[in-house]
């Protein structure tokens, strides 16, 4: 066991050093919840400027992968670098958007309060929200079409509106890498279009986007790269190369019918 772990770490060091330009590179990433292994030995280097979908069946460890990579949940072993440096040092270049269902929307805060959380790094100890911060936050709300909701309590919003508020908070962080956990889960069609428009716009300006994604039907349309996981890494690469019938079959096994897989993978080519 010990020898295996060391080998993984050794391999990890090399991989991380080989990709100093990668916004998020992981090597030998292994995560366990209690006694249950969730991810084992995942190596991946996100290409700069990619629009990446992380896909895999339910419980495959997709959310865990990004949470462990960003230091939100502890990892057993593995190496993570952000832009070639340790995670803690480059945190300010990352905007993370958790799953919408993971927070209590009954929390006593307004839409503007939530977006202002994205400016945390700019507001030091004892310094309070200024007019400049407020303007930045309102501009970010404008970009997701939520400016008129700034003073609403967040619990009064629909699921799609809540997701847009989370995106506005990420925009306020003005990051270089956006990591989003299922941004399209449970949102209306208009919100899905609004979110993908903003993400593509960011991507066009050179920002790297990573989304945990559920809807295989939109992978080819929205993303440039995929990372397919199911506890282990199944495949990675540009959508045209890695989003194939064989890889999906390997990841999802019997959970997708052969016809479904063929149709989905066919859509990408």
């Amino acid at each position: 066991m010990t020898a295996t772990a060391e080998l993984v770490v050794d391999a990890g060091r090399r991989i991380a050093q080989d990709h100093p330009e990668s916004p998020l590179a992981i090597a030998g990433l292994t995560v366990r919840y209690g006694d249950k292994p969730v991810l084992f030995g995942v190596d991946y280097a996100t290409p700069p400027g990619a629009m990446l979908a992380i896909i895999g069946p339910n419980g495959a460890g997709k959310s865990t992968l990004i949470k462990a990579a960003l230091g939100i949940v502890p990892k057993v072993t593995g190496e993570v670098t952000l832009f070639g440096r340790p995670q803690a040092q480059e945190r300010h270049r990352i905007a993370y958007v958790p799953q919408r269902a993971g927070v209590d929307w009954d929390f006593p805060a307004t839409v503007l309060d939530v977006v202002l959380m994205g400016l945390y790094r700019e507001m030091g100890l004892w310094r309070f929200t200024g007019a400049r911060h407020r303007k930045t936050a309102l501009d970010c709300l404008e970009r997701v079409g939520m400016r008129n909701f700034a003073d609403r309590q967040i619990g009064q919003l629909s699921g799609g509106q809540q997701q847009r508020v989370f995106l506005a908070r990420a925009l306020a962080q003005d990051a270089e890498l956006y990591v989003m956990d299922e941004p399209f889960a449970g949102v209306d069609a208009a919100t899905e279009r609004a979110i993908i428009t903003v993400l593509k716009e960011l991507n066009a300006r050179g920002k790297t986007i990573i989304c945990v994604h559920h809807d295989l039907a939109t992978v080819a349309e929205y993303f440039t790269h995929v990372l397919i996981v199911n506890m282990h890494k199944i495949a990675e690469g540009p959508v045209a190369e890695a989003f194939t019938e064989a890889n999906l079959q390997a990841a999802y096994g019997g959970r997708l019918s052969g016809a479904q897989v063929t149709r989905l993978a066919g859509a990408s080519s």
Binding site: I72, Y96, P98, M117, M123
Partner: peptide, 22 residues
């Protein structure tokens, strides 16, 4: 008062708080 922002962000959204180093 001193740690208002940390307390508020950490209470509302602990994962996000961890990601920004709060």
């Amino acid at each position: 008062v001193t740690f208002w922002r940390e307390l508020m962000i950490g209470t509302f959204d602990p994962s996000f708080a961890q990601s920004i180093g709060a």
